[in-house]
Design a protein around this nucleic acid. Sequence first.
RNA 1: GGAGAGGUGGCAGAGUGGUCGAAUGCACUGGUCUUGAAAACCAGCGGUCCUUUAUCGGUCCCGUGGGUUCGAAUCCCACCCUCUCCGCCA
Length: 424
Amino acid sequence: MLDPQLLRNDIKQVSRALSKRDMKLDVDVIQKLEEKRKIFQIETEELQALRNSKSKLIGQLMSKDEDAQATIDEVTKIKISLDEIVSELNVVQSNLNDIYFRIPNIPHESVPRGKTEEDNEEVKIWSTPKSYDFVPKDHVDLGEALGLIDFDAATKISSTRFVVMHRGIAKLHRAIIQFMLDTHINEHDYDEINVPYLVNVDSCIGTGQLPKFEEDLFQIKEHSLYLIPTAEVPVTNIVRDEIINNDQLPKKFVCHSPCFRSEAGSYGKDTRGMIRQHQFEKVEMVQLVKPETSYAVLEELVSHAEDILQKLELPYRVVTLCGGELGFSAAKTYDIEVWLPSQNKYREISSCSNFEDFQARRMKARWRNPETNKPELLHTLNGSGLAVGRTLIAIMENYQNKDGSITIPNILRPYMGHKSVISS
RNA sequence: GGAGAGGUGGCAGAGUGGUCGAAUGCACUGGUCUUGAAAACCAGCGGUCCUUUAUCGGUCCCGUGGGUUCGAAUCCCACCCUCUCCGCCA
């Protein structure tokens, strides 16, 4: 959520800033509601104050055995008009909240203008794709030929957009997770954390998945719980409704979890293979930091994700998302894209975002600033480090051999029983 | 799933209809004292929102949401959560 003060005092500026997202704010509606809100709220609080003082008076009169009936009648009247005005205030307030919770974050000034992927700004390219003396296959052909990936079985036992992996590939998948966790814990100083995969409504509102994007989530209706679309949701919500001490910051968490996404609205997109699944696994980095450090931390987060790709020796590039591509809660996002030989292009494998205080305000996640001794909003950030399924794909495709076997990247060999090749 | 107990400030823990946003203790912050520290003593010490340049002032918050009442932490209803015992179980 944006700062309501800002929305009140300078909605024109907010509206201008949001135009970068190609999004239009209904300034008039908000301003009219705010005007009403102010009138109703002031009147409500005045009436409440009056009621409170008169009621106290009644108590005093009665304890002195004096007649209080006139005052009681007075308060009864106050109560009637109070009830009316409160219900009007509630309507206005909930209208405003409905609007406010659906307004996306303001893009950082460094975010490029634009609508589509084409408008993202390339900031870095690392390494160059290998050339092959044969036509490289995609991970589906490779996996099925090896007999180690089975989409048909997954469809039978579940539905489309799921996968079954066997032996060498299943093990490689697991090795990737261990390697990523170990690297972030031992070299990047994150705390390992394990969290619930089902979360409540408040958590989803806190990080911004609700109320606007309910159709993207899998829901367990009987229990009012949602399957997490990313570990960001449970991990970030750890600090919801908390006031963190200065000396506890920054909080750095790394979390491996499955992620569940309905992929509503992406029918027909990436239907082949493991690129876009209803269930996939991810190692997620989450940081909760003091505001003044958050942009430096964003760069750090990207470098941590990059480190994984560099250790795996996978070619990649980094792009800054343009305003139109930016996620709802993010102020700035870098995507890291890995090279996929079969598609002859870079595909997203990590997304690192600074949410500034947008999520923190929704979550009431604060820290105590020793300078003011007051609670102030935290900044929240997260980044994939990395998407496991897509890393698996990237390894299979980039490390494939002419005979269809897969060479295991050096760094993963200790996790693979020191084997060097996966074959059928 | 069955039976019981309970949810109050950072923690512990009083408070069962009126001046209670809430005693007291601990923790914390500042001060006195001390060569320094500890102890002792003194003082301060929740959050929210509105109004305001700011102060001042006011609202709301005792698990959550309703209700009763002139007035609710306190009474009523529903829900959520925690703990103990029993059952079941990875």
